[in-house]
């Protein structure tokens, strides 16, 4: 059960056992958030930097709350209000922050691989909070946690991920995480969003949503990411919505007790109707709640315990 990592850069570095350790630990941290005093002293005196170069509501506040509930000190840093707008480079930014004795850097960046680059020179623990179109490991871990909480297992479940998988770091981390835990993942969307190459990650591909939803245990809808799409990816939003929006009728093709997930933020009326988002199938807000416990687990597993030597 040992978790021997210095950084959390992606699910690709984690074994099945590592993932299970995170989920077990998160289970215990769930209790802390239900207390009247939602705080334990375990990371007292640690300094964490929340470095967000892209906008975020959930991930950023979730990491902030997780740090605070473990008694760490956290500073929030966003692109718009920093010297990055004056042209300071990423490396300079990190080195300057680190000289103020930070213990961990949580980074979201539009460039894939930036957390790996930072980890190559910095002394702090690096946590990837989403890098470009590459990975978003804590989202996948909290999704796996939520599925396990609702379905009591992951082995043999059919999980359908619908939407722009090729541009989605959430989809990639989830494919890696869920298949490692024994679930079967099917990707659904128009061909431009679910190209054949994604099969190499261990997922099946289905271009017809109705077919894909057949006997699904979990339906995970992705956001259409306008900011990451190249032109002419699909003809129109309206057409996409007609073919791939999750409606109550479509959801009925999945298993009776199938759950609906979405990493947020939702484009209501495009990938999902408002009605579906607030239906009793939806565990979307549970995902957000569990996110804090999962991030507490990650921070504890990386920063708690004996200080290990970090090799550059």
């Amino acid at each position: 059960m040992a978790f021997q990592h210095t950084h959390l850069l992606g699910i690709e570095d984690l074994t099945r056992e590592d993932i299970l350790t995170v989920l077990e630990t998160a289970d215990s941290f769930l209790e802390v958030s239900s207390r009247e005093v939602k705080k334990v002293p375990v990371l007292r005196g640690k300094t964490i930097v929340n470095l967000f170069m892209e906008p975020s509501t959930r991930t950023r506040s979730s990491f902030e709350l997780a740090s605070k509930r473990l008694s760490a000190d956290i500073i929030n840093f966003s692109k718009q209000t920093s010297a990055v707008v004056k042209g300071e480079s990423l490396r300079d930014t990190i080195e300057n922050l680190e000289s103020m004795q930070t213990d961990a850097i949580i980074i979201r960046h539009e460039a894939s691989g930036s957390p790996h680059y930072i980890a190559s020179f910095c002394r702090s623990h690096v946590i990837n909070a989403g890098d470009g179109t590459h990975e978003h490991p804590t989202q996948a871990l909290l999704d796996a946690f939520t599925i396990r909480q609702k379905k009591k297992r992951l082995e043999g479940l059919k999980v359908v991920i619908v939407g722009d998988c090729v541009n989605s770091r959430v989809a990639k981390s989830n494919i890696l995480c869920l298949t490692r835990l024994g679930a079967r993942v099917t990707l659904a969307g128009p061909p431009a969003f679910v190209p054949e190459q994604l099969k190499s990650l261990g997922a099946d591909i289905e271009y017809n949503l109705d077919k894909a939803l057949e006997s699904a245990d979990v339906v995970m809808m992705l956001r259409i990411q306008m900011e990451r799409m190249q032109k002419n990816c699909f003809p129109s939003l309206r057409e996409y919505a007609q073919l791939f929006s999750l409606t109550p009728q479509r959801m009925n093709r999945a298993k009776k007790r199938a759950i609906l997930m979405h990493p947020g933020p939702i484009n209501k009326g495009i990938e999902l109707t408002s009605e579906m988002a607030s239906s009793d199938r939806s565990v979307i807000l549970k995902q957000v709640e569990n996110g804090v416990a999962v991030r507490m687990a990650i921070l504890y597993l990386l920063l708690g315990g004996k200080e290990r030597e970090i090799t550059a």
Binding site: F3, S28, F29, E31, Y300, G305, K306, R308
Partner: peptide, 14 residues
């Protein structure tokens, strides 16, 4: 705490 082994598994307070 920092002298404990790195992965002291946390169990629930109930």
């Amino acid at each position: 705490f920092s002298e404990l082994e790195p992965q002291h598994i946390i169990k629930k307070t109930e």
